[in-house]
Design a protein around this nucleic acid. Structure first.
Lengths: 237, 237
DNA sequence: AGAATAGTGTCTGTTAGACATTATGCT
DNA sequence: AGCATAATGTCTAACAGACACTATTCT
């Protein structure tokens, strides 16, 4: 019953990344233009085969793609699902481990200034019209859904902001991620009663009353004891 | 840059299963005794390599293991995580996709009557002392944690019961899964206000007041709008 | 009648949402 | 002064927990 270990019986294994960032137009996805067949020239998620000589683990593969190919650092990275079947890649049975990652606002500007690179940020509304290669549209939607539902009870959207931020900016990024409007007082109460933010002492000035700046105390997301209930009453898209 | 497709550059890919059932001693795990090296004779999770000739998808691999090797049907099956690195299997780089599954109470009795089979049910307290092979202890703990935290806001534990059940049995299975005591009235109110149960019209008789029997309306788990808050005040193990 | 469990009535505390109000800096 | 946004005060509705109480069947 022992199987012969050749490539005919082993699936191809890749890691695909769904990277979210906060652009001027709202929540955005990082997409790459494919260099090799199949689907040359199409937009696709950043991905790479697992390199068992170089990578220590799957998490390491995900970070390698971000670092080497995109020169980005994710403030948060989470494995979402693994898809494997014989149809998703025309070259045969393939398995992909899908992660989503969040990058902070300052990194987006830096990268979008290099148009010669073959990647681009598109808003999540624009993604559908891109016709991503393979089953990447579906992978994107799974990750978006996971990110949105986790945003109902965690501090995750804050990982899209810069290190210092005002409470109003936090509310805006939640609204961008969830696609719903939120009530100011209860939102701020919720944030502050979690005790995962601290005042930096600095102040954001504009042509009106200045706002206190905050930062995250921990690098891990905070889990609220309840979900945002408004999400039950407003539409999520 | 094209890679040569031989087994040297492709990791081994397996599916591992964490199967929960409700035995007389409480929440239990299904373990198998290994037939082949490495770890011959040790207890381990039921697992199999992905067979790209036979399996259509990873989900199919999981169901095949349950059906062919264990003759079980899972009332619920969920992919939890994928672990891949060069250390977890002495034979080299390996990737495992881990699922947890729930089997209903009636199936447990049937199977535990066949001691010649090389598998067994052990309570989740006993698992630690078994010293499961590979990193299976860790995979088990991830799945238990996922199952427990999801039980705080879903109807999942009910999938461990038979088709018809009383509300008291539902409370007992939640208490077994979560390891906490719950308050009767608020628990029942929560269950009934979800409108995912229906009375079967039948009655469970015993030497006291008989109880109404219920069944699940849908085969999918119900998601409660809030978590069980008592979990914040009592210990989860 | 008494045991045992099924099932209900109702009070309380917590917290999210709503919305009005005050505070502060800029032009 | 007037604008714009920051920040707060406070009422209400929803709902989980607590706990006492009633209901029903069996022995």
């Amino acid at each position: 019953m022992k199987k012969n270990l050749n490539s005919k019986v082993l699936p191809r294994v890749t890691v695909d990344l769904v990277i979210f960032g906060l652009g001027r137009q709202g929540l955005s996805l990082l997409v790459c233009q494919r260099q090799d067949p199949p689907f040359v020239g199409s937009w696709a998620l950043p991905a790479s085969a697992v390199d068992i000589e170089q990578d220590e683990s799957l998490d390491h593969t995900a970070k390698r793609i971000l670092k080497q190919r995109l020169n980005l650092h994710a403030s948060y990275l989470e494995q979402v699902q693994t898809l494997g079947n014989q149809h998703r890649d025309t070259r045969g049975w393939s398995v992909t481990i899908v992660y989503y990652g969040l990058v902070s606002a300052n990194q987006i500007l830096m990268n979008s200034l290099q148009p010669e690179k073959c990647f681009s940020w598109v808003t999540i509304e624009q993604v559908k019209s891109l016709h991503l290669a393979f089953d990447h549209q579906q992978l994107f939607e799974s990750c978006l859904q996971r990110f949105q539902s986790k945003s109902l009870y965690t501090s995750l959207p804050i990982f899209l902001l810069e290190e210092e931020f005002t409470l109003t900016e936090v509310q805006k990024v939640y609204e961008a991620v969830l696609g719903i409007k939120m009530e100011k007082k209860s939102f701020r109460r919720r944030l502050l009663e979690g005790h995962f933010l601290e005042e930096t002492g600095n102040i954001r000035r504009a042509s009106h009353r200045p706002a206190q700046l905050y930062r995250l105390i921990e690098k891990q997301p905070y889990y609220f004891p309840r979900i945002i209930e408004g999400a039950r009453h407003q539409s999520l898209s």
